[in-house]
Simulated scan of single mutants.
Amino acid sequence: MREWIADDVLPVRDKSVEWLSQFHFFRDPIRPIYIDPDYFFAPADGVILYQEVVDPEHSVIDVKGSAYTLREALRDDTFSQRCLVIGIFMTFYDVHINRVPYSGRLRYRELDAIDTVNRPMLDVEHELLHQLRVPAKGCEYLRHNQRVINRIDVPDLHLSYYLLQIADYDVDCIMPFELGQNNYVDQGHRFSQIRYGSQVDLIIPLSDRYEFTTLCEPEEHVEAGIDPLVHITETTEEKNR
């Protein structure tokens, strides 16, 4: 994270909010596209806030002393799968183009904020940029804010995984690039954008067929489509079939 702040944040930190909004925020840099079926790549640029394996009713992170669960995140009381969850916080200085971590068929649904307006993410951004640490509080937005739940079905892995996009207070605008449902999306390709501050969670249900090994740690900064987050290997039982 220190290296990213020194290279990408400090050179533009003195610019006005107007300049950042007009000329910096909407950048979409050309990137190589990596295709590798052994990895899930990062879906977003940002700092890893948390990385946990959790049951659906157990806490991903505590918010104001109460458990924020997968069922709450997906707003689905019937969700029943144990999952690996990786939360990536996108600051105002990050590229906000989201990319596909693993190829498959994409469908999505948008859910409104629970309250009248979204909760702000500014406290989390301040802690990351100024204190260089993942904050212990200020994550109320996880429970309340507008979100888009993207489900990507992957027949080759015999599973479906999820990308949970959560919008910030300022501009609650999550923009999918294709409006059709069940379209095939390729690993590394652009599929959506969230305007201004935001967060993307990669949620991978665990499998008897495969082992998922994480490659990054909380407080690391990652780039969408560039950094592999999870290594996929067949289980011993699957190899012996």
Rank of each mutant, 00 (worst) to 15 (best):
V148A: 10
I86M: 08
I174W: 06
G104C: 12
R119W: 06
L215T: 01
R195W: 12
V54G: 00
L157H: 14
G138M: 13
E52Q: 04
G188I: 04
D94C: 08
Q187V: 03
I203C: 09
I226V: 07
I174P: 01
Y34M: 04
G104N: 10
L179K: 05
S21T: 11
D170K: 10
D115K: 12
P101E: 06
I232L: 05
R13L: 15
R190P: 00
L10K: 13
V230S: 03
L202N: 04
Y162G: 04
V60L: 14
Y196K: 03
L84Y: 01
E125D: 04
T233F: 01
F25S: 08
R190M: 02
P176H: 09
Q81K: 15
D8K: 12
P176T: 07
I149D: 05
G180C: 04
G188F: 05
T91H: 09
E238A: 12
T233E: 07
Y34L: 13
C139T: 13
D201K: 06
L202K: 08
L163G: 02
Y93V: 05
D38N: 14
T116K: 13
D36K: 03
G46C: 04
G225R: 04
D201C: 14
A136L: 15
Y102H: 15
V171R: 10
Q199T: 15
R119Q: 07
F23S: 08
F79Q: 04
E52R: 10
D77N: 09
Y184C: 02
V85G: 06
N118D: 12
R109A: 03
H24S: 05
V95P: 01
E178N: 13
R31D: 00
R209G: 02
D62N: 14
V95F: 10
V85F: 05
Y184M: 07
E18V: 15
D172N: 12
R119H: 05
N118S: 10
I30Q: 06
Y184P: 00
G87L: 02
V95R: 04
D156T: 14
R143Y: 13
R209K: 11
I226S: 02
V154Q: 13
M90L: 14
V100L: 05
A167C: 08
I204A: 04
I232N: 08
F23Y: 11
T214Y: 02
A67E: 09
H126T: 07
R107C: 07
P135Y: 11
E217S: 09
D45G: 05
D227W: 01
R151F: 01
S160G: 11
V117N: 14
F23K: 12
A67T: 07
L132H: 12
Y210D: 03
K137S: 12
